[in-house]
Simulated scan of single mutants.
Amino acid sequence: AWQLAGESAVGGAAGADMPVMHALEAGAVIRDTPQGPELTLSLGWPGGLLSQAEVERLGEAWLEMLAGLAEHTTAPTAGGHTPSDFLLPALAQDEVDDLEDEFADEDI
C-alpha cells in the first residue's frame, strides 16, 4: 500500500515478491524554506543489489554534480539562447548562435 513518507516526500511500499524495474530509483523534491530553496533526494533500492555504502556514494556523486551545475549557471559565460527560446521562427542552433554573434553588443 502507498503511504506518505513524511511531510516533504511521497513514498510507498511494494510487495516483497514484486519485481523491481530498476536497481536504483531516485527522486528529488525542492522546497522553499525561510533559508532558501532546499533539495531533498530520496533513493530506493531492493536489498541485495546494492549496499548502503554504494547508494550513499551514488547519492553524494549526484549532489556534487548538481552543485557543479548550479555553480556553472552563475558564470557570466553560462547560458545563451536555444531554438526553443523563440516561439515563431523555426531556427536551428547555428542560426541562433549567428544571431547572438551579430547582436552581441545589443540587449536581445
Score class of each variant (00 low, 15 high):
residue 82 T to V: 15
residue 10 V to T: 10
residue 7 E to R: 11
residue 64 E to L: 12
residue 34 P to Y: 08
residue 101 D to E: 15
residue 33 T to S: 00
residue 36 G to E: 06
residue 89 P to L: 10
residue 44 G to D: 08
residue 62 W to H: 02
residue 19 P to W: 09
residue 6 G to P: 01
residue 40 T to W: 00
residue 100 E to Q: 15
residue 40 T to M: 12
residue 85 D to C: 00
residue 96 V to S: 07
residue 108 I to Y: 12
residue 40 T to E: 03
residue 9 A to D: 08
residue 107 D to W: 13
residue 53 A to C: 08
residue 64 E to F: 01
residue 15 G to S: 14
residue 70 A to L: 09
residue 15 G to V: 06
residue 91 L to R: 00
residue 78 A to D: 08
residue 58 L to F: 02
residue 41 L to M: 05
residue 71 E to R: 09
residue 96 V to G: 14
residue 76 P to K: 10
residue 78 A to P: 05
residue 84 S to D: 08
residue 95 E to A: 06
residue 25 E to F: 03
residue 20 V to P: 04
residue 40 T to S: 11
residue 80 G to Y: 08
residue 80 G to S: 07
residue 23 A to F: 00
residue 68 G to A: 15
residue 24 L to H: 01
residue 85 D to P: 00
residue 90 A to L: 09
residue 65 M to F: 05
residue 70 A to G: 12
residue 27 G to D: 03
residue 21 M to N: 14
residue 100 E to H: 12
residue 76 P to Y: 13
residue 50 L to H: 12
residue 78 A to H: 11
residue 56 E to D: 06
residue 87 L to D: 09
residue 96 V to N: 07
residue 91 L to M: 08
residue 7 E to C: 00
residue 51 S to I: 00
residue 10 V to H: 04
residue 52 Q to W: 03
residue 79 G to A: 07
